[in-house]
Design a protein around this nucleic acid. Structure first.
Lengths: 121, 121
DNA sequence: ATGCAATACATTGATTTACAATATATTATA
DNA sequence: TATAATATATTGTAAATCAATGTATTGCAT
């Protein structure tokens, strides 16, 4: 239990949401996603990403099509389904609400007698 | 794999951070934390909270003291250690950076030829 | 006194999931 | 034909939340 663990927990929580967001903005294949996440300082490994994309595909939120590459094996390009777009809308709302709640919860308040929860011992 | 799972993942990610924040704002015992988290729409169960508090205590971020209750068994009131305060500062910074990154990542952009990553098939 | 309800701390077993390491396959090039 | 680069995919491990219980203390009604 160290602080880096807590930090990575925070990042984990938004992984799926961010990946859906990336795919919603345009057709991408896994390496595109890894790169875009890295730019946002939200690193994800391939061993995490592939099962996650498979889960999202099986859940009906994503589809893919094979695309030939000029320099290597063919790639799976992922796109959102209508169901995926709807789900993303819900998650966007959830994110906004949660971010607001966390910001409020972490607001630094002066610890006066009125708002403190000091125990009476 | 459904959308509620992804939503709860998002909430899980900030659990420890929020709990540290609550304790930093004043001495509390576990039921206070459950209540405050519920108000923020970030529900946590006792079976999750007790081990989590023990982890944070063993990591040196928290301390507690026993306080007699007027209506029931004694309570463990938790307070931050200096180390805990420092860790919270780091996590607050991490949260702010991550929230900014996620907001940027989920910004709705017009999908023009310039910023799209459309595959050439 | 005794039993019961409420409150509070705590543990156990199951499930999920991210990660590290590795495996499999394809393409281009030396 | 061997090697490097690229790409998809799986396996085993570890960590953490949750639901369900367990244990203990206090106050109150009978």
């Amino acid at each position: 239990m160290d602080i880096q663990n807590t930090q990575s927990q925070m990042r984990k929580g938004v992984l799926e949401f961010c990946i859906l967001s990336i795919i919603q903005q345009g057709e991408v294949y896994p390496s595109d996603i890894v790169e875009k996440m890295k730019l946002a300082n939200l690193h994800i490994l391939e061993g995490t990403l592939y099962p996650l994309l498979t889960r999202l595909k099986n859940a009906g939120l994503l589809n893919y099509r094979w695309v030939e590459s000029i320099s290597g094996p063919p790639r799976k390009y992922f796109v959102m389904t209508d169901e995926g777009k709807a789900a993303f809308g819900v998650l966007l709302q959830t994110w906004k609400e949660m971010a607001t709640a966390v910001d409020q919860l972490t607001e630094q308040k002066t610890n006066t007698a009125e708002n403190s929860n000091q125990a009476v011992s």
